[in-house]
């Protein structure tokens, strides 16, 4: 009697443990500093020549249909066709997503996307592997760019302005009062890390500079943080190398097997045509988000262990 009553409690207790564990994980993992912002997504071909530009175009279509499914407000900032493949290929697409919090979801899309298929241009039926690179940036408003989002307080975001190259699209000629040009694009390069940020959003060159610098700092900080995390994780896990390396490919689109696999969460979708129309993308990103949370907790543990180890040594 008592045993069966106790047994009744087990499933609900297990559920309670699970949900509080999930809540604890969520509470432990700090929210991304730019989570609340709208975003800018950039897609560019990687390796694979004109097939890569075709795949870039496929990704472009995938994201635009996904955005309209989400009813997100978007503006195409740049869409450059690739002449060689008869207008079907795309050599650069930049989309601005006005929806707040879109950065928090889309930031997980940043990275190298790989495609395996027999390209339309292939005559001998061979499978090719090509890539496209997706980059997602938070879209900072004017005020946020000015205060630089508190990145000033983040020691990892500290950069020496002497190591930043600023390129401004300039007219040849006298400048100043002589011309009323509208070109305001700014490109910034952090020389030690090679990180590049281009900004052409505002009509004010000064504002573009301010937002480019804010994003540059955030990206440098992210890179440094990742390096630190990888190091901590590989120490915790012994000699085992962590993952496939976060800078590597994040997802494979295999047309011959009708499969999309995310290499971080390990999850797959077996409806590739549907996926390319934006179906299942949200679920896959949610999976990556979960993976990212777990990983963050592990990173925190690893960091703590390194701290403890240090203290022990000092105490001795």
């Amino acid at each position: 009697m008592l045993a069966s009553m106790a047994a009744d409690d087990i499933p609900s207790t297990v559920d309670a443990i699970r949900s509080s564990s999930a809540a604890l994980t969520t509470a432990l993992v700090p929210r991304n500093q730019f989570a609340a912002y709208p975003s800018i997504i950039e897609i560019r071909p990687g390796t694979g020549g004109s097939e890569a530009t075709l795949f870039t175009n496929d990704l472009y279509k995938m994201y635009t249909t996904f955005f309209s499914l989400q009813r997100w407000q978007t503006t195409v900032i740049s869409y450059q066709t690739h002449a060689e493949t008869g207008g079907e290929g795309c050599s650069e697409a930049v989309i601005s997503v006005a929806t707040p919090e879109s950065y928090d979801l889309l930031r997980h899309e940043s990275g190298v996307h790989r495609v395996q298929r027999v390209p339309a241009t292939e005559t001998k039926g061979r499978t090719h592997t090509s890539t496209a690179t997706v980059m997602v940036l938070p879209k900072l408003g004017e005020d946020e760019a000015e205060v630089e989002n508190g990145t000033d307080d983040d020691p990892l975001a500290h950069i020496d302005m002497k190591e930043v190259r600023i390129d401004i699209m300039r007219a040849s000629g006298a400048g100043g009062q002589h011309v009323n040009r509208t070109e305001s694009a700014v490109r910034m390069t952090h020389l030690p890390t090679g990180i590049v940020v281009s900004m052409q959003d505002s009509r004010s060159q000064h504002k573009n500079k301010a937002s480019a610098l804010a994003i540059l700092k955030a990206k440098v900080a992210e890179k440094r943080r990742k390096e630190r995390e990888e190091e901590a994780l590989s120490m915790r896990r012994g000699a085992v190398k962590v993952g496939a390396g976060r800078s590597d490919k994040i997802r494979t689109y295999n047309y011959t097997q009708n499969r999309v696999t995310d290499h971080r969460s390990g999850e797959s979708s077996h409806d590739l045509p549907g996926f390319m129309k934006g179906n299942g993308l949200k679920e896959m990103i949610e999976g990556v988000r979960e993976w990212d949370k777990q990983r963050s907790v592990e990173v925190m543990l690893a960091m703590q262990e390194i701290e403890d180890e240090k203290k022990k040594k000092e105490g001795r």
Partner: peptide
Amino acid sequence: QTRTLPLALSELRW
């Protein structure tokens, strides 16, 4: 007026 496509796109957007 802009002479380049990226700037023409920016002006159209503005």
